[in-house]
Amino acid sequence: MSRVRIRPTRDETRQRLFEAAAEVFAARGIGAASIDAIAAAAGFTRGAFYSNFESKDALIIAMLEDHVERSLEHHRDLLARHRDPVAYVAALRASERSRQDPLGRAPLLHMELVLFAARAEQRRPELAKRLRARRALVAEIVATTMRAAGHDVDPARAGAMLLALEDGFRLHRLIDPDTTPADSFLRAVSDLTRAIGLDKPRQA
């Protein structure tokens, strides 16, 4: 008979720590959240935490990296199935990103973690690497969907603008959630597609 595995794998341990950290950060604030509290919330010892991450900052960077990688995979999967810009935005709106990772469910926490990590100068190059990956992805989406719609745009420039728009709405929601709906960015993108006529059938 095969032995039943009881101990979680390394990936399972990291995901449990990510989930626990998101809960503790939300409840106590990032600065006040301790490693002991995060480990306990995940059902692990302090030693288990340190066997995976050297510090709380390292955990935060790993959470951001995990979120970016999952986001890249998610968007490229949508892009493979929806190359028309209007269809892509509709699919993005309908997709359940909340099931991917704790930062996918909590975009405001995502923004808070980015700002927290950015305060440490030595961490900024790592954040910049993830920002470039996001820009490249959005440029790829713009290039593919605009080509399918018969429009000629600069993908890199348009991608940077869209990414700045998304981050701007996240910041606005962090400051004033009452007047900034959770889907503000997608609403804005839908408005833009209508404004430049992407919602109209292509002329033969």
Rank of each mutant, 00 (worst) to 15 (best):
T45K: 06
A87E: 15
D84K: 01
R135N: 14
G159Y: 03
A136G: 15
L174Q: 13
R202V: 11
T45L: 04
A118I: 02
G150R: 10
K129H: 09
A136P: 00
R124A: 08
K129P: 01
R130H: 14
T145W: 00
S98F: 07
G104E: 07
A26K: 10
R132K: 14
P155N: 00
V138H: 05
R130F: 08
E19F: 06
D199M: 01
R105W: 03
S71V: 09
P8V: 02
P85D: 10
I175L: 14
I61Q: 13
R170L: 15
P125C: 04
E126R: 13
L78Y: 09
A164T: 13
E96M: 04
L108N: 06
Y50C: 12
H75T: 10
K56S: 07
E112A: 15
F185L: 02
E23A: 14
E65F: 00
R170M: 13
A160Q: 11
E96V: 09
I61R: 12
K56E: 11
R97M: 08
E65P: 00
R81W: 04
H151Y: 12
R123D: 10
L137C: 04
S71W: 10
R81P: 02
L113Y: 03
R119A: 15
E23K: 10
A117M: 11
F18T: 02
R16K: 13
D167N: 10
R5C: 08
R16C: 07
F185C: 03
A120D: 15
R14Y: 04
E12A: 14
I141G: 03
T193I: 07
R202P: 05
L109C: 05
I175P: 02
R46Y: 12
H82V: 02
R170Y: 04
R5T: 15
R134E: 15
D152P: 01
L131G: 08
L79M: 07
I196H: 05
A33H: 07
A41M: 01
